[in-house]
Nucleic acid binder design. Structure first.
Lengths: 237, 237
DNA sequence: GCAAAATGTCATGAAAATGTAATATTTCAC
DNA sequence: GTGAAATATTACATTTTCATGACATTTTGC
């Protein structure tokens, strides 16, 4: 997979943002920035960065607030956070890690150290829960290899259909409205026509149908619930 | 769903209040307004809106104050807030003031974006907790999957019949007039012929009958109370 | 920079759902 | 039993909701 991982840099000092940005760029990450906790929160919800670098000392002391909040909300709890701070007291470390922050870097730091820590955190967090394959009958979705197979044959689909199937397979037996699906698959504040969801559902079904053998048609797992949305279910419609 | 959600619009400019009010109305929300933070607070405590749209730049900077206060007080902390902010040079003054608002929208915004964000926030804050399945003998209605099963076989019915059954199953052993059923199932501001309820009752009974095995006929649970209305009951008619 | 893949929107037709009126059936007072 | 009132059922026109193919545009891989 060649898609770059994105890091959100949250710091009120432009010089620091730039410095880190350059370091990340050199290391092959893409980055975005936010000056305030508010701006950061919106960016995180909207764009879902792979990791957040968060300055402890944001004006108003809201850095720690933001971290706590991100870890508390289900939607963002799994995004790793590395705190940046000038303080070295153990108190702060304890407090920060208590909130659920993944690592902690004290200023001043070398770009090299920062990048090393980012990589370490990313390795740790992506290596855990996420890459366990999900299987339903002979349909398997493997996050680690980012691949869908049916009877051990690869199923060809676009990235959106992959995310869609991934969402469904991790949330089986529940209806989701088109709005809700947009939130989960496209991001919280992306505005699309409602019917666009239908089209991608159709594409996903088609991909599953082409890959299905003469037995079960796996497209049937994705059920239309009239007036409500869609549902992934192994039970008869 | 059936009961309309109410949004409180807090802005000192009448034009903006009106514009937003119309947009919300179109989107199926009901709205109320307040011009000042004080008025807003009274309204919120009194009427508990489902969401508050709050202008950041109320005269005296009291918008921020109100947000902070609402989030601090337990009684109101769980009411979602979306801040409306102007993209001005004043931005710097408010940086870092993360008081825990749920989202923010910068003026000028399109009504469409606003509505989408409102829906997203409401989904996030309320959509998580879903009701438990309701079971009567072998008849089960599961709100999470939006499905009705009888002896583990899916019962096929239209959306209206689903809402009807849901209403009955959550209010067993009580008679309801046709008027009352209309209010609960169709919504308070919908006018229908009285007989329409009969028709849908019929459709629901039919759906249950087709799904019932040779044993009990589950259509019998929906009892006609002559001169009064209908009743969902497990006891003999 | 080019070709292929992916994406989002729209238009169209099909299918399902809906509300109403007409007709049939049941119920109950007498 | 009889008839009127209440309810059930049926049929149907209309509306709503979905699936799908086509298309313009953007993104991606090389």
């Amino acid at each position: 997979m060649t898609t770059e991982q994105t890091i959100l840099i949250v710091d009120d000092e432009a010089a620091i943002r730039d410095m880190i940005g350059i370091a990340l760029d050199t290391a092959g990450f893409s980055s975005m920035t936010a000056e305030t906790a508010l701006e950061a929160h919106v960016n995180i919800v909207d764009r879902r960065p792979d990791l957040v670098l968060l300055d402890w000392m944001l004006p108003g002391g809201s850095g720690i607030e933001l971290a706590r909040r991100l870890k508390r909300e289900e939607l963002t709890a799994d995004i790793p956070i590395i705190m940046l701070t000038a303080k070295t007291s153990e108190d702060n470390k304890v407090q920060g890690l208590d909130v659920g922050v993944d690592d902690y870097v004290t200023k001043p730091f070398s770009p090299r150290e920062l990048v090393a820590r980012i990589k370490a955190v990313l390795r740790r967090s992506t290596g855990n829960l996420r890459d366990k394959p999900i299987r339903v009958f002979d349909l398997e979705l493997d996050p680690a290899s980012h691949r869908v197979t049916l009877d051990d044959h690869a199923v060809d689909m676009g990235p959106t259909e992959y995310r869609l199937l991934n969402f469904f397979m991790t949330h089986p037996e529940k209806v989701f409205s088109r709005d809700h699906i947009q939130d989960q698959v496209w991001g919280a504040n992306v505005y699309l026509e409602e019917r666009t969801v239908d089209v991608h559902i159709g594409r996903l079904r088609k991909a599953l149908t082409s890959a299905s053998g003469p037995g079960i048609n796996y497209a049937g797992l994705i059920q239309t619930v009239r007036g409500a949305g869609y549902r992934f279910s192994t039970r008869a419609d």
